[in-house]
């Protein structure tokens, strides 16, 4: 047999007890072991074992939901790295931005990547939602997952908005001032809600700290839980919408 030495080495690695203790299956060459590869893995078991080939076509999703999720992953990683250099204090927060620009190795790149992914995630989440809408992906039995999606949309917007204040520059300060002033227009609740959000009547150091906690702890946790429910529900609702099924059910078929 003319197996390459690399394949042989890999084969030997697979035969070790250490490897077997981690991956409790043989090579994924049969449908049984391929199924095990998915549902025997904590991270992959959110995925179905089988998918319809129609749902795999690019135009079924344009991978928009996946890309939204991947952007979130990039944001969590770059965000944690940024936290190592950031103090939520006035005016130290601004100095940390300057340090990222001039002192920290690759600080500019790190900040660029986080900021860019944040903008991209807002675009992607809207695009994903509109795409799902036009495909009719909200129809029963997927109503509830659509509602979970609306929750994810709001969390994404809030994440982006709370992050906007953190650099503590003029752009940040006035954008948050303009935005939170709108809340006071709400009858009765407006002023108390704004006070609670800002920890005061003005955008100051309390507001910075609150936005920091919201941005780095509370909202990401909510997002992770909602994404978990969202993915789980896709499976429980029978996978992605296949367009033709719906049309046949209604007694007409287009195209």
């Amino acid at each position: 047999m003319a197996t390459s030495s690399l394949a042989q080495a890999f084969g030997r690695l697979r035969a070790t007890q250490v490897w077997k203790s981690i991956f409790r299956r043989g090579p994924a060459r049969t449908n049984r072991t391929r199924s095990l590869a998915v549902f025997g893995n904590l991270f992959l078991h959110a995925l179905p074992v089988k998918v319809r080939d129609k749902s795999l076509r690019v135009r079924a999703t344009y991978y928009l939901g996946s890309i939204t999720f991947f952007l979130f992953v990039v944001l969590v990683i770059t965000g944690i790295l940024l936290m190592l250099y950031y103090h939520p204090a006035v005016p130290q927060a601004y100095r940390d931005m300057k340090d990222l620009g001039f002192v920290v190795s690759n600080g500019v790149f790190l900040r660029n990547l986080h900021r860019l992914a944040a903008q991209a995630m807002v675009v992607a989440v809207f695009w994903h939602m509109f795409h799902v809408f036009y495909r009719g992906g909200y129809r029963p039995p997927r109503e509830f997952n659509w509602v979970v999606g609306v929750g994810l949309l709001l969390v994404t917007l809030f994440l982006s908005y709370t992050g906007y204040l953190l650099p503590w520059d003029q752009l940040a300060f006035w954008a948050i001032t303009v935005g939170t002033n709108i809340i006071s227009a709400m009858p009765i609740l407006g002023r108390p809600v704004r006070f609670m959000l800002l920890g005061g009547n003005l955008v100051g150091e309390n507001a910075l700290l609150r936005f920091y906690v919201l941005h780095c702890v509370i909202l990401p946790l909510i997002a992770i839980v909602l994404v978990g429910v969202h993915f789980w529900r896709i499976q429980k609702d029978g996978g992605l919408t296949v367009k033709e099924t719906f049309q046949e059910e209604n007694g007409r078929k287009e195209e």
Binding site: L47, E244, E248
Partner: peptide
């Protein structure tokens, strides 16, 4: 029949991954 007849299925590993 109509509900179940959503076409061919493929293994997620490796096609989807």
């Amino acid at each position: 029949k109509v509900k179940g007849d959503a076409g061919r299925q493929l293994m997620s590993f490796p096609h989807l991954l």
